[in-house]
Simulated scan of single mutants.
Amino acid sequence: MTYHSGSRAVQDRVGVRDLADHVGRSIGQGIRPVAAAFLEQQPMLVLGAADPGTGAVWASLLTGRPGFVRATGVRQISVTGGPRPDDPLAPALRTPGTPVGTIALDPRTRRRMRVDGRARPTPRGLAVEADQVFSNCPKYLQRRETYEATGRVPGTPRRGSRLSPVQAESVAAADTFFLATVHAHGADVSHRGGNPGFVRVTAPGELRWPDYPGNSMFLSLGNLAADPRAGLLFVDWTAGTTLQLTGTARTEFASDGERSVRFTVTGVVETPAASPLRWSAPEYSPANP
């Protein structure tokens, strides 16, 4: 099933059903050799899922030496390692059959690839059996030409229910974040990008960002139309700090055709030095408004 009723509702509202059907032909279940080669070059992978106990949706960052993510079958990827025990997504990934979305994003080439399916723990980490595999265009993706792996050790996570002033400043300065959403049949993680300031903190417990024109599939907004739970991941590309937010989101449609998403925060996890990767300064996407 390429699209569910939530995505169809948004496509019809915007008037892009035919285009969505055309673009949707690129979604498959198999991992092609070129996609497998791309995965093995990546030092990071973002996963999204719902906590089986609380129902909260989170997005988490996994990192490793290139090759830590690889295709181990036509419809399977395997990940060496996994989230830290104190990561909010850890319980979900310890549960066999958990619906999970993944995205491998390469800032060096502005390429990204998504594999959505079912996760199961393995002796070396986890595996994901793919239900949907597809790539996205480079729109709104900032180029970062190089990275280095540092030896920094993750700090103790700081938890809360609202953004602190410092956290709000980091969100407002972000040019990229990842959005995890769920639906009745699975989960998905997408990328959102723009010039710094494109995400606005309107209150300690509320964020808002514009929904820029994309591929017309409306997978994320379709998921939110069916289930408002969502998780956001912000990464400090230099210091390695991650900021994970969980809450609910809804799309607002303006009379002029513009769209924006309003996110209400219910949980915050900030982890200093969570990522060992230090990336070079960004070159902003020419597609950014």
Score class of each variant (00 low, 15 high):
Ala49His: 08
Phe68Asp: 00
Gly101Thr: 10
Val57Asn: 06
Ala50Gln: 12
Met44Ser: 14
Ile103Val: 15
Arg108Lys: 08
Gly101Pro: 09
Leu47Thr: 06
Arg108Trp: 00
Pro99Gly: 09
Thr80Gln: 14
Ala71His: 11
Gly81Val: 00
Gly81Trp: 00
Val46Leu: 12
Arg110Lys: 09
Val46Ala: 07
Met113Arg: 14
Gly97Pro: 06
Ala49Gly: 08
Arg94Ile: 01
Val79Arg: 01
Leu89Ile: 13
Leu61Lys: 11
Leu45Ile: 06
Gly81His: 01
Asp87Leu: 06
Asp116Cys: 03
Arg70Gly: 06
Thr98Arg: 13
Ile77Pro: 03
Pro107Gln: 08
Val100Pro: 02
Glu40Lys: 13
Pro107Arg: 09
Gln42Ser: 15
Asp86His: 13
Ala119Asn: 07
Ala59Asn: 07
Arg118Val: 07
Arg114Tyr: 12
Arg65Val: 15
Trp58His: 10
Leu61Ser: 04
Asp51Ala: 13
Leu105Ala: 00
Ser78Pro: 01
Ala59Gly: 07
Glu40Ile: 06
Asp51Pro: 11
Pro107Asn: 11
Asp116Gly: 04
Thr102Gly: 07
Gly55Ser: 15
Val69Gln: 00
Gly53Asn: 14
Val115Gln: 04
Ala71Ile: 05
Ala119Thr: 09
Pro83Ile: 07
Pro52Tyr: 14
Arg65Asp: 15
Met113Asn: 11
Ala71Ser: 15
Ile77His: 07
Ala104Glu: 02
Val115Glu: 03
Gly53His: 12
Pro88Val: 02
Arg110Met: 04
Ala71Tyr: 13
Pro96Leu: 10
Gln76Ala: 09
Gln76His: 05
Arg120Asp: 12
Trp58Cys: 10
Glu40His: 07
Ile77Glu: 03
Arg120Ala: 15
Leu61Val: 08
Pro88Ser: 08
Thr102Tyr: 01
Gly67Ser: 04
Ala50Gly: 13
Gly67Gln: 04
Gly73Arg: 14
Pro66Ile: 02
Arg94Met: 09
Gly97Thr: 06
Gly101Trp: 05
Met44Lys: 07
Gln42Ile: 02
Thr102Trp: 01
Trp58Asn: 11
Pro121Ala: 11
Gly101Ile: 05
Asp86Ile: 10
Thr98Cys: 09
Leu89Phe: 09
Arg112Asp: 12
Val79Lys: 01
Leu89His: 06
Arg75Ser: 14
Gly101Lys: 00
Pro91Ile: 13
Arg84Gly: 05
Ile77Leu: 15
Arg70Leu: 03
Gly81Ser: 06
Arg110Ala: 05
Val46Phe: 02
Pro66Cys: 08
Gln41Cys: 11
Ala59Cys: 06
Met113Leu: 15
Val69Lys: 00
Arg75Thr: 14
Pro96Phe: 10
Pro91Cys: 15
Gly48Arg: 04
Pro88Phe: 02
Asp51Thr: 13
Thr80Leu: 13
Ala71Leu: 11
Ala92Thr: 07
Gly97Trp: 08
Leu93Ser: 02
Leu62Lys: 01
Ser78Asp: 12
Asp87Gln: 08
Asp86Phe: 12
Gly48Tyr: 03
Leu45Glu: 03
